[in-house]
């Protein structure tokens, strides 16, 4: 869609250039002639009162006036151009100073750009290093996490084992306590029975001994 528009636009532009440029000088000439005509009209109107029929002297006079007018115009033009030259010179100086300033700025900016570029390169290098480091750390992290999982599992297993051991130990101690208690109870009974028996035996022995004791004579 846009291509045909641009094509038409370009063609119209070329047509304008073709049709207007050949007549540009003509227009200038016509305008100059118009100016001259206006001047002649003025001069003729001013001279109307003095002489109605123009003669050779009048034509010369007209010519002189015309030349004076042209001279004045040229003077004006020269002064305009001179002032224009001064202006342009000032502008040029200003532009030079601006150019110098911009050049300095450009140099500074170029230096900054080069330093930034160097910094960027350095940062890129650092980024690359860090990305490598990050990859390595991620790997390490994942391996550590795996190790942690394994360690946790091992810990759980060890805990289970420990609890089992403790349970067995508790069982053992309970059994030992029970055995000890039972043994003490039996020993106590035996001791009591023994004490009773020994008392009975002693009681039984005493009269027998007195009976069996031989006479002193």
């Amino acid at each position: 869609m846009e291509s045909w528009k641009s094509h038409v636009r370009a063609e119209l532009f070329h047509r304008d250039c073709r049709q207007r440029d050949p007549f540009s000088g003509l227009f200038e000439k016509v305008s100059r002639l118009e100016e001259m005509l206006t001047l002649h009209m003025k001069l003729s109107s001013s001279d109307k009162g003095s002489s109605r029929c123009p003669d050779e002297g009048g034509i010369l006079h007209l010519r002189v006036n015309e030349l004076e007018f042209l001279n004045q115009q040229l003077k004006q033009k020269i002064s305009d151009l001179t002032s224009n030259i001064y202006l342009k010179e000032a502008e040029l100086q200003y532009c030079h100073s601006q150019v110098a300033r911009y050049r300095t700025e450009a140099v500074v900016l170029a230096q900054g750009a080069s330093s930034l570029k160097a910094g960027l390169e350095e940062y890129e290098y650092q980024l690359e290093c860090q990305s490598k480091e990050l990859t390595a750390l991620r790997l390490e992290h994942s391996s550590l996490r795996e190790e942690l999982t394994a360690a946790n599992l091992q810990n759980e297993q060890l805990l289970e084992r420990w609890l089992e051991e403790k349970k067995e130990e508790a069982e053992r101690i309970n059994k030992y306590n029970a055995t000890q208690e039972r043994w003490q109870r039996l020993a106590g009974r035996l001791k009591k029975r023994h004490r009773v028996r020994s008392r009975t035996a002693c009681a039984a022995d005493k009269p027998t001994e007195s009976k069996t004791e031989p006479p002193s004579s």
């Binding site: 003490q184 020993a187 106590g188 035996l190 001791k191 023994h194 004490r195 020994s198 035996a201």
Partner: peptide, 15 residues
């Protein structure tokens, strides 16, 4: 009996 008593005394360990 004395031996028994002694051994019983020894056997009755700390509660």
């Amino acid at each position: 009996s004395l031996d028994l008593s002694t051994s019983l005394d020894h056997s009755v360990q700390t509660r």
